Simulated scan of single mutants.
Amino acid sequence: MNNMSAIQKIKKNYQLYLLLLPGFILLIVFKYVPMYGVLMAFQDYSFTKGVLGSHWVGLEYFRRFFNSYQFWDQIKNTISLSVYQLILTFPLPIVLALMLNQLTKERTKKFIQTVLYAPYFISTVVLVGMMYVVLSPSSGIVNKIIVALGGKTVFFLADPGWFSHLYVFSSVWQGTGWAAVIYIAALSSIDPQLHEAAIMDGASKFKRILCIDLPSILPVIVIQLILALGNLMNVGFEKALLLQTNLNLDKSEIIQTYVYKVGVLQGQYGYSAAVGLFNAVINVILLITVNQIVKRHSETSLW
């Protein structure tokens, strides 16, 4: 009876399922079908033999990565950069959304939103190119200002100490406005009568933010935090590679750039697949762990 009931529901709402079908097919083709390539992490992969015909090496590549002198440096660089980015890029969109929600003039609000959203649509290559121009030691405006104020020229892109700051603050500038969209949407669904009642009771704007706005969007914040922590080991590969130089390599070499170098540039496909699989497993463990912790202490969770 349950199976018949499910079939009847599908027949009744077949239009909705047809709309869902293209996205479902894309998900299967581009996300699940390529998973057979995980086998490369356990093989001495060869293009001519393919995944099914390549020689099986088991956990050899994992042992090789764990025993490499770069292992702990890459783990440290990846985690420190991810945590630094999370600390800044996660709360700022929430603050921005709360501030924009307090604007009463609709034209002003839309103008500010457009200005803040615009950097998101700049490609990573263009963004890094802008950083090279602005931070150039010879002609960059930042160094010209520093020299004019009596300071010395700073080689930002060559100094390992500046790499993480440049990476994270450029991400803040580029992504904060766009990341605030989901919180602005959540704030727009709050019943205006709650604010009207709070105003009648003499609540200030700050009090209304604390007692109405924040509790209302808390489930969205929790879900976003779980996803962010579950994606902690995935640092933006393109920007890290483009900002990387031989002089800042000590801080800029992360797992993603290492996988690119050994996999694409050196052709060690099995080894790079093993490193990538290790990174993915850590992310899955983090996602499940954080979700379970949140589930125990609140009613909001991914599952």
Results as ranks from 00 to 15, higher is better:
residue 158 A to M: 08
residue 53 G to S: 02
residue 117 Y to L: 06
residue 190 I to F: 10
residue 54 S to Y: 01
residue 34 P to D: 05
residue 167 Y to G: 00
residue 110 K to E: 13
residue 204 S to Q: 01
residue 119 P to F: 04
residue 25 I to R: 01
residue 76 K to D: 01
residue 141 I to D: 00
residue 123 S to A: 10
residue 245 T to V: 08
residue 11 K to T: 02
residue 28 I to R: 00
residue 191 D to V: 08
residue 31 K to S: 15
residue 246 N to P: 05
residue 195 H to I: 01
residue 1 M to R: 10
residue 14 Y to R: 14
residue 249 L to H: 09
residue 121 F to L: 10
residue 222 V to T: 11
residue 197 A to M: 12
residue 291 N to D: 15
residue 290 V to I: 15
residue 101 N to C: 04
residue 7 I to A: 12
residue 177 G to D: 02
residue 143 N to Y: 05
residue 102 Q to Y: 06
residue 7 I to P: 12
residue 198 A to K: 09
residue 299 E to W: 05
residue 205 K to Y: 11
residue 96 L to A: 10
residue 193 Q to I: 04
residue 19 L to G: 09
residue 42 F to D: 00
residue 194 L to R: 14
residue 242 L to R: 02
residue 273 A to S: 15
residue 145 I to W: 06
residue 95 V to L: 07
residue 8 Q to Y: 05
residue 241 L to A: 14
residue 255 I to S: 03
residue 95 V to H: 01
residue 115 V to W: 04
residue 256 Q to A: 14
residue 246 N to R: 06
residue 58 G to Q: 00
residue 175 G to W: 04
residue 219 P to A: 03
residue 260 Y to E: 06
residue 283 N to M: 13
residue 253 E to Y: 04
residue 118 A to P: 08
residue 127 L to S: 11
residue 118 A to S: 13
residue 40 M to T: 00
residue 105 K to T: 07
residue 255 I to V: 14
residue 11 K to S: 08
residue 249 L to Y: 15
residue 104 T to L: 07
residue 235 V to W: 03
residue 11 K to R: 09
residue 99 M to G: 08
residue 298 S to C: 13
residue 47 F to C: 00
residue 49 K to A: 11
residue 124 T to C: 01
residue 238 E to N: 15
residue 226 I to R: 00
residue 266 Q to T: 02
residue 140 G to Y: 04
residue 189 S to L: 02
residue 179 A to F: 08
residue 283 N to D: 12
residue 86 L to H: 03
residue 271 Y to V: 06
residue 56 W to Q: 05
residue 38 V to F: 15
residue 185 A to I: 09
residue 291 N to F: 12
residue 195 H to P: 11
residue 15 Q to E: 10
residue 149 L to C: 15
residue 123 S to K: 10
residue 39 L to M: 15
residue 203 A to P: 06
residue 215 P to W: 06
residue 116 L to G: 09
residue 189 S to R: 01
residue 104 T to E: 03
residue 299 E to G: 14
residue 281 V to D: 06
residue 126 V to D: 05
residue 167 Y to K: 02
residue 214 L to D: 03
residue 113 Q to D: 12
residue 116 L to N: 11
residue 138 S to H: 11
residue 123 S to L: 05
residue 84 Y to S: 07
residue 202 G to K: 00
residue 61 Y to R: 02
residue 17 Y to V: 07
residue 81 L to Q: 05
residue 278 F to Y: 14
residue 82 S to R: 03
residue 140 G to W: 03
residue 78 T to H: 02
residue 206 F to S: 09
residue 244 Q to L: 05
residue 291 N to E: 02
residue 250 D to E: 09
residue 37 G to C: 08
residue 19 L to P: 03
residue 114 T to L: 06
residue 244 Q to K: 07
residue 279 N to I: 04
residue 259 V to E: 00
residue 65 F to P: 09
residue 228 A to V: 04
residue 58 G to F: 14
residue 129 G to Q: 04
residue 55 H to R: 09
residue 177 G to C: 10
residue 208 R to E: 15
residue 88 L to P: 08
residue 97 A to E: 03
residue 198 A to V: 13
residue 40 M to R: 12
residue 159 D to P: 11
residue 188 S to N: 12
residue 231 N to P: 04
residue 158 A to I: 01
residue 162 W to P: 04
residue 132 Y to N: 14
residue 266 Q to D: 08
residue 286 L to F: 15
residue 257 T to W: 00
residue 30 F to R: 00
residue 131 M to W: 07
residue 76 K to V: 07
residue 110 K to N: 15
residue 21 L to W: 02
residue 165 H to C: 09
residue 131 M to C: 13
residue 85 Q to S: 10
residue 302 L to C: 01
residue 206 F to G: 12
residue 151 G to T: 12
